[in-house]
Structures are given as C-alpha cells and as structure tokens.
Design a binder for these strands. Structure first.
Lengths: 342, 342
DNA sequence: TACTTTAACTAAATAAGTTTAGAATTCATT
DNA sequence: AATGAATTCTAAACTTATTTAGTTAAAGTA
C-alpha cells in the first residue's frame, strides 16, 4: 500500500512540540516568530530525517496559493509555442512555481472552459495565454477581475491587458520590404482565417504598409485567406487558382509557420518549384529546420526565449502585486529579426 | 477584489438544506444516497445559477485525488515529445483529467526532484514519464510503490514497469535493412552519449542485427557516440574526422531527431553535400518538415498519436485499479513505419 | 514584592470540501 | 397502536496544513 506520508503532526509528536511551531519553522518563519535556534534545528533535521514534504492541497486550501501557473496555447505541438513553453517553465521553476500547459485547439469554448476551471476557481495563481478569443468580453467577468493574466503572442484590442508579444507589425513590414528590395512587385500573402487575432492583423498591416512605402498598389487578389479548419485543401485550391489566374507572382509570403508548412506540402502536391519559377518564399515565424528546406525560406524570427522569460516574470510580478498596481498594464513588445537565407 | 466564490454552504443556505446533501447531488451521488429527484433538481439549478465550481484543493485534500497527471519529458520543445504531449492531453481531457507537462532537460536530479514534488506527495494522481534515469533504483522507493507510473519512449531494464514504447529494435532493423538493400555496406551510425536509455540501445541493436543478417561485418568506427551536452561541436569534430579517415561511407544513420538536426547543421557548416557524395541520410524519428529538407531523409516514424493515447489510458487504468492488479505490468510495444523519401 | 516585558511556544479556528454515522419522517404491517 | 422498514436528510468528523489569539515561564524593572 505504499508507506504513510509524514505529516506536520508526526514531526511535532516526535519532538514534543506543537505542529504550529513545526509549520512555522518549515516555512522559514522561525526567526520571525521567535522560535529558538536550537528548536529550529531540531525541527529541520527531524523533518529531513522523516522525509517530510508538505501536502500541497492543504497548503493551497489554507493559503489560497497553489504555486501553479497555467499556459494556454492553441497547440502545444506547434514549435513556436512549445519553445516558449520551455522557457516559461524554466523561468518559473527557478522561482518555485510549476507550469500546467494546455492546448485549446483554437477553440474558444475549450479555452473558456479551461480558464473557468483553472482561474475562476483559483486552481492556479496566474495564467499565461495565447488567446484564441475574438473579443475581451469573457475576460471582463467579475471573477477574472484582478486575476493575474498575461497575454502572449496575441492580445485583445477591446480590453486593457498585460501582454508580451513580438513586434508583428515591424517584422512583417521589414520582411516585405526585403522582398520588395529584391525586386518583388507581386507578393502573394497567405493568411489564416478567422484572422481576428492581433498578431495576424498586424502582420497584414505591416505587409500593406511596406507596399505603400514603395508605392506598390496593394492588390486584393494578393491576400488569400486560408481556412484554418481545412488548411491543406483550401490552400491547394486557392493557391492553384491564384497561380493560374491574375498577375504573375514573384514571392509568396506566409503569415505564420502553420501556413508555411501547409504551403510546402501543397508545393509538393501540385509540383510547384518555387526556385524554378523564380518565386521567393518568405514566412513569418522561423523554424530551425527551415535552414535545410528546399526552397530557401526568408523568415521573421520571433524572440521565443525572451517572450517566455518576460511572460513568466510578468506573471510572477502580477501575482506578487495582486490588487496593488492593478490599474497600470504592462505591455511588452519585443523586436523580431529577419533571417534571409541566400 | 474580484467577487466571492460560491461555496457549497452558500447553496445549502439558499435552499435550506445541508451542505452534505448539496455535495452529494453535485457529485452525482444523489440517487445513491436517496435524495429525491425534486431536491436534486433544485440543487443543480441553484448551483448553475450561482455559478458554483468546487474548490479543487478542498476536494483533493479530502479525497486524495487531484485529477491531475504529470508528464515528464526531457524537452517539451522536441517535436516528438510535444506531439505525444498533445495527444495525451487530449485523451486525458476527455476523461476529466488535466495534464502538467515538465521538462527535465535530461537531468536526472531535476527528474527526481520533480517526481518527489509531484508523485511522492500525491500532488498528482499519476505520472507519465520519458525517464532520463540510468537505473530503476529511484523508482523502487517505498513511497513510489504502487504509485501509477507509465513509462513512455524509454523504459528501465532493471525494474518491472508499465510502459508504452515504439518498437525501436524493429524500426532500426528495418531502416538499416532498407539501406543495405539500396547497396550500402558502410553505414555510419550516429548515437547520443550517455546512451543508456533503452530506446537508443535497442536502435543500436537493431542496426547491428540488420548488418549481421546480411553478413556485413560491423565496424567499430561506424558507430560514433556524440556527447549530448556539446552535440554540435562534438559531432562536427567526430564527423569530419571520420569522413577523412577510415573506410568510405555510403550512408549516415542518426539514431534520433536531435542528432539528425545537429547533423544537418554540421553538413552546412563543413559544406558536406550528402547527395553529391552519394551518401544516403537516414534518421530514427520523423519530423514533418523532413519532407522538404535538402538531403532526402529516410526515416523511422513513431506512432506518436497512438503512444499518447495508449499512455494516457494506461495511466488512467492504473489509477482506477490502484492496489489491485499491481503485480501485472502492461508493456505496450507499438510498430513503427519507414518513410523512404525517394 | 509586584508589575511589565520579552521570549518561546500552543490551542483552536480556519480553508472548503467529502464521508460516516445516525436522525427524522413517512409508510407498511401485524 | 406499536413495531419495523424504507425514505430522505443532517450533524459532526475528517482531510492537512496555516494563522490568530493567547498562554506560560523567565527576565527585567520600579
């Protein structure tokens, strides 16, 4: 049946002291409560000897703190998110916090259910989220007021919030600019729909503004919206259609890594050789394997490590200053970098 | 300050019943305890109206069940693990369980600390782990006896355990065989060291047995052990050295995706063109992007979805049958498939 | 000596549920 | 009418910590 866990009371009995005292010492408050050095030592050594580990649930129940933070992302198998997750976890671990990672599958209902489960009932102390929600309505709930939430990757434009994001606008502007400088006049941008999320709208804006900057008229047929739910098929259809009709393309720019890989797949399927056709391939979001992929990929790389670390620390800051400070929102926008593979 | 949470007691007061009754109804035990249908309805509707959600800590404290399962892997940003994680999470969510994912960084101490934190103090109900440990000694601890643990990807040979793994031996044998059939006689295998983990030793065995099967003498200089901590540099050094000296190579076979990507990087660095040199490139572990990578990669693909689902269900099974059944261990070995890109 | 202060410690309340043992009411039976 | 059984519900104990309010004993002071 396994061995019985050591409780505070067991240590207390062994030493003929109260469990109050043991609790105080274990939590490092011995000095603050005036427990003698000798007693503190006795308690600590006995606790070690008996392999005491506190019951996290009893502690969380009493204190209201679980030392647990949740990370909600669309899909943990997306390397962008799994990399961020790695750094968040590392940063939190160093501060004594643990991370729960959950995928929402870009499903608003599931996202809200998870938030309700975790945050509203205070199972977690804080939440880091790449929201898939269209609006901030849900986050205005009374129950979520004052709950430490850090948005990453995407933020909601209709509510004030704490967030850590890459400079999507700037990155997109720069990569488009680079393509233009390489002589491109007809850059086909491939976006995901529904594309209400801030990161995508800003990338679109960056793309358009770069064109404007160089007096290139934005052409409606050069921005395709690919359905997220049926990405492969929809992309194949729209792309082949676009390649046949309309003005000749000199670059394809995918607005995230998800479309980028789908696009590579479609290239294979329809036998499109970007190099042969003289078409540049560019993508927002870099994946390390892009270094070895057949059509050279020019990409915007996001500072995933920085995003992770900043998000973790912002969450911890909000937890520590709950209530206080709640009127000022931290908005952290980090620079991206262009990786031009020639 | 946020709004006060609804408690069982609040519902009880509103309806003039005991919180015992409310608890029973909420937990679906109304019929079992003979609570009248009418009362049950009243309770449920009031609970909905007041947006009641149980306090997970109070519940976990009393019942000893947290409905939390932890997944420990070396590195959540490794696509192999993040994919498995995704399917485990999905499967668990459908059964009312939540997942905590943690990276151990292939660090035994960190792994043991996490197990101690989570499992020994029963923060979690079960553990799914791709262990980085050399031996099963730690898992023999009295405290872990009878704790539901499912090993994935790797298992320990010196203890009996429940595990879900791919058939590493068979997969490695098959891919080596394929290379031999393509005419390769000098296949350079690249392994990670320390390589005590079962998956790697079995892949090595599969590699050697395939050679034996075709009467090819295994050559010691054709199995390089690359240091995990310094993978890029060590690989560069050993590979360039091996390419210069010794018998000419006709294939390179990396024993996991980590070495595979490192190897691709080194190819770039040292300007090695596998295709030009007439060297096949093969790898255990498939990554979807391999489809577009420059030297064609022949790979062994593991059934990640299946591994995730089986592991999740095995963990749940162990949790449900704790104590019972503990003498028989489930060992699930799943078939791999070869992806030969020609 | 009597009173205050300080040091060192403890009993009991508390967090929010679940479970056990039993009570109150109704109904049926002799 | 009394007894037994079934139905429906509840008080109190319990889970394991933390925290509050307070006690005891020793030391210091007037």
């Amino acid at each position: 049946m396994g061995i019985k866990k050591t409780l505070l009371e067991d240590i207390a009995k062994e030493l003929n002291v109260s469990k109050t005292l043991v609790s105080m010492v274990i939590n490092g408050k011995g000095d603050a409560y005036g427990i003698s050095k000798k007693t503190q030592e006795k308690v600590l050594s006995k606790a070690g000897e008996m392999e005491y580990t506190p019951n996290v649930f009893a502690r969380a129940l009493r204190t209201g703190k679980s030392h647990l933070i949740a990370l909600l992302v669309a899909d943990i198998s997306n390397p962008f998110y799994s990399n961020i997750a790695k750094y968040i976890e590392k940063e939190l671990a160093s501060k004594g916090y643990n991370l729960m990672i959950c995928s929402t599958d870009e499903n608003v209902e599931r996202e809200e259910k998870l938030i309700s489960l975790f945050a509203e009932q205070h199972m977690i102390d804080g939440l880091i989220i790449a929201t898939t929600n269209t609006s901030g309505e849900y986050f205005k709930k009374e129950r979520l007021r004052n709950f430490p939430i850090v948005f990453i990757d995407r933020y909601l434009t209709d509510i004030e919030s704490n967030y850590v994001v890459a400079n999507n606008y700037q990155g997109s502007l720069e990569i488009t600019e680079l393509l233009v400088k390489k002589g491109c006049k007809n850059i086909l941008a491939l976006n995901i729909t529904p594309s209400h999320i801030s990161s995508l709208t800003e990338r679109v804006k960056g793309y358009k503004d770069a064109l404007k900057k160089y007096d290139i008229l934005f052409n409606d047929e050069n921005l395709l919206e690919i359905s997220f739910d049926n990405i492969q098929n929809d992309l194949r259809e729209q792309l082949t259609n676009r390649l046949k009709n309309g003005q000749k393309i000199d670059a394809i720019y995918t607005l995230n890594n998800h479309i980028a890989t789908a696009c590579l797949n479609v290239f294979n399927e329809i036998g499109f050789d970007a190099k042969k056709e003289g078409v540049y391939f560019a993508s927002f979001d870099d994946i390390s394997l892009f270094d070895f992929v057949k059509p050279n990929i020019i990409s915007v790389s996001q500072p995933v490590e920085k995003i992770g670390i900043e998000a973790a620390n912002l969450a911890l800051h909000l937890i520590d200053n709950k209530g206080i400070d709640s009127s000022t929102f931290k908005k952290i926008v980090l620079p991206t970098s262009i990786i031009s593979r020639d």
